[in-house]
């Protein structure tokens, strides 16, 4: 019986090592691509670099696609790995850049992250629409007083929401990563604890003999 379990153990350990090896080797040999993209009104800014801190080369073409995969346009990276794209419509934007040698950067801007004055009324940023309607017939002096406290509040709320959104996304991605680490850590603990139990039991067996 002991021998049988030992052989099962060996199979389990070798398969675990294999899985471990596979997960490690699927990581790119060089550095991971890191990229970020942010919307400010209808202007989309982004940057692409590598996990070692080096930014992507200037001149790399960034393809801009819509959700269906149709090409909306393209833009080119500047010196510091940054790019700017002026969105024309409020919709989901996908950005793809091929950095060669197997590095591909992909970024997404959701439709609700974009807001232009032209589409403010149709978008959920109601505050902006209301203010522009109200302030239009009045002179400059009146503008300040035309923005009531509640309007100001809702403006601030939507502005903050806009700014916080990329952070939320990053946090979500980070949580996922941590979750995976916790699972691996938990499994490690379990195998370790039962390893100690096996070691203690084997010592006890030796003493009995």
């Amino acid at each position: 019986m002991i021998f049988q379990y030992q052989s099962i153990n060996r199979i389990v350990i070798s398969s675990l090592l294999l899985v471990l090896g596979l997960t490690v080797s699927t990581n790119p040999l060089a550095h991971n691509v890191v990229s970020g993209v942010y919307a400010d009104g209808m202007t989309i800014e982004g940057e692409i670099g590598f996990s070692n801190g080096v930014m992507a080369e200037a001149g790399v073409v960034v393809q801009v696609l819509n959700e269906a995969g149709d090409k909306l346009g393209e833009t080119v990276l500047t010196d510091d790995g940054a790019f700017v794209y002026q969105a024309e419509t409020v919709q989901k934007h996908l950005f793809k850049a091929n950095l060669s040698s197997g590095h591909i950067a992909e970024m997404v801007i959701e439709a609700d992250e974009l807001s232009g004055d032209a589409v403010a009324e149709s978008n959920n940023v109601e505050a902006k629409g209301e203010i522009s309607e109200k302030t239009a017939p009045q002179n400059n002096v009146a503008i300040a007083s035309a923005i009531s406290a509640s309007e100001l509040q809702s403006m601030i709320r939507s502005a903050v929401a806009q700014q916080v959104r990329p952070l939320q996304k990053e946090l979500r991605a980070y949580k996922e990563k941590v979750m995976f680490r916790d699972i691996a850590g938990g499994l490690g603990f379990i195998f370790g604890l039962f390893g100690v139990a096996a070691w203690m039991a084997s010592k006890r067996n030796v003493k009995d003999d």
Binding site: V12, L187, I190, F194, A198, A201, N205
Partner: peptide
């Protein structure tokens, strides 16, 4: 719990840990 069965107990403990996730 005896020595022979510890690997099995460990494996099933790990299975339960993962299954709930």
């Amino acid at each position: 719990m005896d020595l022979d069965r510890i690997p099995q107990i460990g494996m099933l403990s790990a299975t339960f840990f993962i299954a709930s996730l």
